[in-house]
Design a protein around this nucleic acid. Structure first.
Lengths: 207, 207
DNA sequence: ATCAATATATGACAAATGTCACTATATTGA
DNA sequence: TCAATATAGTGACATTTGTCATATATTGAT
């Protein structure tokens, strides 16, 4: 498994390299120190995983990731940060990063990289619990309107993700079927999905 | 990480407890000795992981797991057994267990529990290779006919689980839309599901 | 060569789904 | 208090989905 590490602190890249290479399955194919380098190196080296700091000068990790994902939608990008920051989580989440872990938690880095390589999406436990709340509340930054799901909407999503029909959801939540249809219509629009099946998939992948 | 252990052999629960608690991340919050206890204790203690024997009197592990998953769909249940038994694997797999490991292989228990806790699904190496075969071929035991999925059917399931419409699947597989509808109809019947959304959910839970 | 099974397809149909425009009420925050 | 917002509803509509009966071509086994 080929990993590219990008962090503007060279001490961090160096120690991450050591940690990761202590695992025989992992090969660090390069390190960089800026968002720009991240993009260039990613394109040149085509690693399986890009492990990148979220805060860097010039170009933030988020911007770099967006650029990369625009060119290579399947890129597996994992963010590193020294603290848990709601804005960043939502952003990382929104642009399609595979995960987000705290640098502090060094022991979890190797298993997380491996899990991502296996196709998992790994948001740290302390973070994954926040995602529904993040989606429903706050998130007033630009371009985030479409992610503000209400309590009720989340409740409905859960029912869809349990395989219930509109009629069944209506019964369960004491709403009319038409109302449920409307809710789902709004949810799909907010999340940019087409139908309830994609919604269920979204739920299992991201929530 | 809170773990609940259930096995009708008290020696087993005791030794598992010792093994698991040798890891500082793991706390064994309870032990039980029957399927019934598994359900009661699970509901009371809400552990992160339920590690349960698959063969027990009164209520088998499978039944207990089904009961629990009906109430708490996100429960992480990991089965233990002393031998590798195809029937059980398929069952554990079908009802949405997170994994299945052999008691023999004591060293693998801690890492497996951790991986499951991190959201992985872990079926032992000797077992995971069998799953596609189990789903597509063989499985001649009673009540198993409905699990014989053909290659094509599996291919279609994957497309459904990627959120494609019938039209899109038809295009991708060079079939007519009607044919795709027919395939899906058959798949749903075989798996006892009602619609494509439930199929996508089934896929993410079991495949 | 024939028979049975398999894969693919049609058409008809009912039900479910998603969209849209519009209405009504209650709450709330300025 | 007024306006905005959240919540819930209706009806109409086009589309998609799932079911079923049926048809045809291919193929593997006898």
């Amino acid at each position: 498994m080929k990993v590219l590490i990008v962090d503007d602190d060279k001490l961090v890249t160096a120690s991450l390299k050591t940690i990761l290479e202590s695992d025989e399955d992992i090969e660090v194919v390069g390190t960089g120190n800026s968002g720009k380098e991240a993009v260039d190196l990613y394109m040149k080296l085509r690693p399986d995983i890009l492990l990148m700091d979220i805060r860097m000068d010039e170009m933030t990790g988020i911007e770099a990731a967006e650029t990369i994902l625009k060119r290579e939608g399947k890129a597996k990008i994992l963010f590193l940060t020294t603290f848990s920051d709601d804005e960043y989580i939502v952003e990382a989440f929104r642009i399609g990063a595979k995960g987000y872990i705290l640098k502090q938690n060094y022991e979890s880095i190797v298993p997380t990289v491996k899990a991502v390589h296996m196709g998992q999406r790994v948001f740290g436990d302390e973070i994954i619990t926040k995602i529904p709340a993040l989606l429903s509340n706050s998130a007033n930054k630009q371009g985030m309107e479409e992610y503000c799901l209400t309590e009720k909407e989340i409740e409905i999503i859960k029912h869809v993700a349990n395989g219930l029909s509109n009629k069944e959801i209506a019964k369960a939540l004491y709403l009319s079927e038409g109302t449920v249809r409307n809710y789902i219509s709004v949810i799909l629009e907010k999340l940019g999905l087409r139908d309830r099946t994609q919604l269920a998939i979204f739920y299992y992948k991201n929530m």
